[in-house]
């Protein structure tokens, strides 16, 4: 008998890697951008967007095969996906679950929008932003980003 396609899995389970669940709907691609995973990197990815969620209504899910993300990597996504859950998968089993915590400092994630900032030159430094309660402050020039943080992701 043929399986009922309407009840098939939206995206397949992965054998080893990382599943980022409960991403704020619509932010999956920004999450990947923050993690530095682009079309030119080698990871095999599965992405589902606007999936029904009991917890948050709609959510995005990202599965990254054969790569276990480190805590400091995933914490950077907390700004845009504060409810995200990280599941580390080994041999199809969840071996570790963790939430994300907003870090005190974001390094190399966001470009300073101030054209006069020293970080927008050829100096050998990465951008650094202090995380405030209501935005981000450039560690170098004190410029504050309060809205549309994803517009400034490197």
């Amino acid at each position: 008998m043929k399986p009922d396609a309407s009840h098939g899995l939206l995206i397949s389970p992965i054998r080893d890697g990382t599943v980022i669940d409960h991403i704020t709907a619509g932010e999956a691609l920004n999450v990947l951008k923050i993690l530095g995973i682009t079309g030119s990197t080698t990871e095999r990815l599965s992405i589902a967007t606007n999936v029904a969620s009991k917890k948050i209504g709609r959510k995005d899910v990202v599965k990254i095969e054969n790569r276990e993300l480190l805590k400091e990597e995933v914490d950077c996504i907390a700004l845009i996906a504060p409810n995200a859950r990280i599941n580390i998968i080994r041999d199809y089993k969840v071996v570790r679950k963790k939430g994300v915590e907003i870090p005190l400092m974001l390094r190399g994630v966001v470009r300073c929008p101030n054209p006069g900032c020293i970080t927008n030159t050829s100096e050998p430094i990465e951008s650094k932003f202090k995380v405030l309660g209501n935005g981000l402050r450039c560690h170098y020039c004190d410029w504050v980003i309060r809205d549309h943080i994803t517009d400034h992701i490197i």
């Binding site: 006069g116 900032c117 020293i118 970080t119 100096e123 560690h139 170098y140 020039c141 004190d142």
Partner: peptide, 13 residues
């Protein structure tokens, strides 16, 4: 003294 904002912070590093 430098024309770029944040130059002194960079220098201190």
């Amino acid at each position: 003294r430098h024309p770029k904002e944040g130059a002194a912070r960079l220098a201190s590093e």
